[in-house]
Design a protein around this nucleic acid. Structure first.
Lengths: 352, 352
DNA sequence: GCGTTTTTGAGGTGCGTACCTCACGCTGCG
DNA sequence: CGCAGCGTGAGGTACGCACCTCAAAAACGC
């Protein structure tokens, strides 16, 4: 049987109340007594029964998820995944609110936060562009004692506790290798479409992509990033004018907007003849893989992302360490040949 | 606040004892009363507090992991991952035993099981070849009320509750696409190395591989499977004699034995000039990717595997449904360019 | 309506922890 | 010497549930 607080008290020769004070870092215990208790804990190998502790504490964790208010299948699926995770055992004793915030308005986020009880939250997961406003917001949350994680796109300059997302440089490098090797020795130009260079994930993907392209595929000419701003029509248009210059043999769609790109490719009759590597599994990328417009999709497991954010927020709120291995979000390379079957049950095209 | 058993009792107009009898399926309650209680449960949206229930029940789950007793970095790493998961929160109130069983001896598994308390276990995860003995063993475990999952390699004919592992056909198809496209239009022969065709995962990988090869790369000639039986020297030898026939332009290492293959390739001076796709991230495959002997590695997240097995066994033991999404083990395509940094802390070359 | 069986109620104890109150003894200070 | 203040002990209640006992009530068969 595992030792309990009572065993510790007996072993240390103190009362249960004192053990409790030590365990929960409450004042009113002499340093000497504290170490006596800690020694007893080590000797018996005591580990706190988290279930019993939470039962007794009756604590409710309030977590807030801030997602950009853009029209995107990926964000919708992410939102669904969070909702689903919030129903699971990970969200035991948790109250979870998902708020969608306009991306271009720096003050919207502050007001949303205030509306949602603001500083009362125990933790917050933020997916947003890397702006001074967001950085300040994170600092404010942290100084109020909340745990903060950046989601999907990192905020490396801010005081977030953790980044929940993939290694985007590695993703960009992977895209480069696939694109380059699928293309073979054929020379030409490569277009890169991003949503916005304000998003850290886009920057990182581009960095990784360029690195490998320069090193391994110098016969390919990488064009400047096209910013589609998560807008399908705009993406289509800028892709078209880029294709206009001719000799574009491949496209790396690092951000949202795959639909705009494939539309453009179809219009000029290049679909299937241009190597396309895109990100995230949605209805459109799935269809693109099926009809061979897209050669490879680099996806992240959105359910894992949601659960990981929850686990990390929870751990940080309890000041517990996290299991790095479990929180590492891996990238999946999807091809026409290994597409997971469509899961029609929960939400529109929930990526696996 | 979430409703408790007391709320149910009040709502249903019965006593707490009766609610308890219904909840835990104890006898001595009229059908009418049962449905009254169930209606109250539905009306209030009651969900059992699992933590409190387990606390009160003081139940200890006994789970047994049966792994093949072969000399393999992958199996060692898997064993380590299970040990690590067994220390985590998932293994709360669990006693976990890992047993290594000789693969060729059909009776060894039975005797190990008996030695480990045999029928006393609440659940068992089995990684083994698909033999009649194993099938019988699973049937026996099941009839004794234990939960059974197959691990890594499935037992589709047996009465296992669940398969914890990747979609091996999809893995084989992925290998085929990468190998074929990396190779380009160059014709030639492709060698396939497996550990044993008795292992279901090998069969499935080969099936998926052949399917895509036939469909998309008909200019390549796929050679019969070479069985290395997880033996480095044997694998090296059979690879050598296969390379002897000449014109082998690619090798798909579907099973263990990558070291034997790369050794053979180096010996005949074909390393780096032959496209090699292998499985699992170990010291050797990592080194192979680094020095470009290996072009791509298809890996499964071993930590996820261990945690998933634990979660599923636990859920099955409690007769709870599982979260399909969370238990889906995805495959990771590793290239030289997206190799995760080596984690030297826990165990020898723990795959990420 | 009787005896018998089945169903139900009331209540208790315990799981391991958090958190609270009250009181006691000790120390040091004026 | 008395008193404040600190460190500690003793003990209680609560969390939500499992599981037990004993007795009372209801249903049943005849």
């Amino acid at each position: 049987m595992r030792p309990t607080v009572n065993d510790i008290a007996r072993e240390a020769g103190v009362s249960l109340a004192t053990v409790d004070r030590v365990l929960n870092a409450r004042p009113g215990v002499r340093a000497k007594t504290v170490s006596a208790v800690n020694e007893a804990i080590d000797r018996l190998g005591y580990v706190r029964n988290v279930a019993a502790a939470n039962l007794a504490r009756q604590r409710i964790y309030r977590f807030l998820f801030l997602l950009p208010a853009v029209q995107s299948q990926f964000i919708s699926a992410l939102s669904d995944a969070i909702t689903e995770a919030a129903r699971g055992p990970l969200a035991e004793a948790c109250e979870i609110v998902i708020a969608r915030v306009p991306q271009r308005d720096p003050h919207a986020m502050i007001s949303v936060l205030d509306a949602e009880g603001g500083l009362q939250v125990d933790g917050c997961a933020i997916m947003a562009h890397e702006t001074p406003e967001v950085r300040d917001l994170i600092a404010r949350l942290k100084s109020d004692g909340a745990a903060v994680v950046s989601l999907i796109t990192d905020q490396p300059q801010a005081a977030r506790d953790h980044f929940v997302g993939i290694d985007n440089q590695a993703a960009g490098r992977t895209a480069a290798v696939l694109l380059g090797r699928f293309l073979g020795p054929r020379p030409g130009k490569v277009a890169v479409v991003v949503s916005s260079m304000l998003a850290r994930d886009m920057v990182d993907r581009r960095l990784g992509f360029d690195e490998v392209m320069a090193e391994r595929f110098p016969h390919l000419q990488i064009l400047p990033s096209l910013e589609g701003h998560d807008d399908r029509a705009l993406t289509r248009q800028i892709t078209l004018s880029c294709l206009d210059q001719g000799d574009v043999v491949a496209v790396y769609v690092a951000g949202a907007g795959t639909r705009g790109v494939t539309e453009a490719l179809h219009e000029v009759g290049l679909a299937g003849r241009t190597v396309v590597v895109a990100h995230e599994l949605t209805e459109h990328t799935r269809a693109g893989l099926q009809d061979r417009t897209i050669d490879a999709v680099i996806a992240q497991d959105i359910g894992h992302l949601a659960r990981s954010a929850l686990r990390v927020l929870r751990a940080k709120a309890d000041r517990r360490p996290i299991d790095e291995g479990q929180e590492q979000i891996r990238i999946t390379v999807l091809l026409r040949e290994n597409l997971p079957p469509e899961t029609s049950d929960s939400g529109p095209s929930l990526p696996i």
